[in-house]
């Protein structure tokens, strides 16, 4: 949803990626038990101030949160309904929604202020001890970078499909768009695998590549 890096030189940008990821993990853990709506609202205000300090382009990203709105509202309603619409239940519902909103915003603060390469380096360091269990830190780190890179690409592919629908129909875009989109996504994955292979990433010297299945005699 919100996943791109915003170039800049703010104090947040200058912090090492590892420190930011640790702080994000720590803050998220601290937020979990917090259930005072007032405290959470205060934290939200602080996070919003951090966005404001980063400038207009950071603030503009908040508009991308809109799709999250109905989901959060549903959570509030569900919590309140489960508690027979008592004051406490409504308060608890707001606390849950605020907590999720805060976590999303905090995570976005890290992505918008950290170049992907730094994030990959930090992740690689964290994963290195697991190498002996067959985990390939470099591949996992690359996978994370690819997710960040291709979220906007897939979003625009989905929007293009919606537009193509709207150009020929007055009804709302339906589930019928999904299979085609999935097929397109799989094709894209094939192309990206080729591009990685063309640049020599993890190319084996003796094993045929996946694309060879087309070419074997």
């Amino acid at each position: 949803m919100m996943s791109s890096y915003l170039p800049g030189h703010s104090p947040l940008h200058r912090l090492p990626a590892g420190a930011k990821l640790l702080a994000l993990a720590g803050l998220s853990l601290l937020l979990l038990p917090a259930d005072s709506a007032l405290l959470l609202a205060g934290a939200l205000l602080a996070v919003l101030l951090a966005y404001a300090a980063l400038g207009r382009r950071a603030l503009a990203r908040l508009a991308l949160l809109r799709p999250l709105g109905p989901v959060l509202l549903l959570m509030v309603l569900l919590q309140a309904w489960a508690g027979d619409w008592s004051r406490a239940a409504v308060g608890a519902g707001f606390a849950v929604a605020l907590r999720i909103l805060l976590m999303v915003l905090l995570a976005d603060l890290v992505t918008l202020s950290t170049p992907m390469q730094d994030m990959m380096d930090a992740l690689e360091r964290v994963l290195r001890p697991f190498e002996r269990f067959g985990v390939a830190p470099r591949k996992l780190a690359l996978a994370v970078a690819l997710v960040v890179r291709f979220v906007p690409v897939l979003l625009s592919a989905w929007r293009a499909r919606e537009e193509a629908w709207r150009a020929r129909s007055t009804r709302r875009p339906a589930l019928a768009l999904v299979p085609g989109f999935l097929a397109q996504t799989l094709r894209l994955a094939d192309h990206v695998a080729d591009a990685l292979d063309a640049r020599g990433f993890g190319r084996p010297a003796d094993r045929p590549s996946p694309s060879d299945k087309r070419t074997m005699p």
Partner: peptide
């Protein structure tokens, strides 16, 4: 280009 650019920056 969207099939080959692998990184965000």
């Amino acid at each position: 280009v969207d099939h080959q650019i692998l990184f965000p920056t």
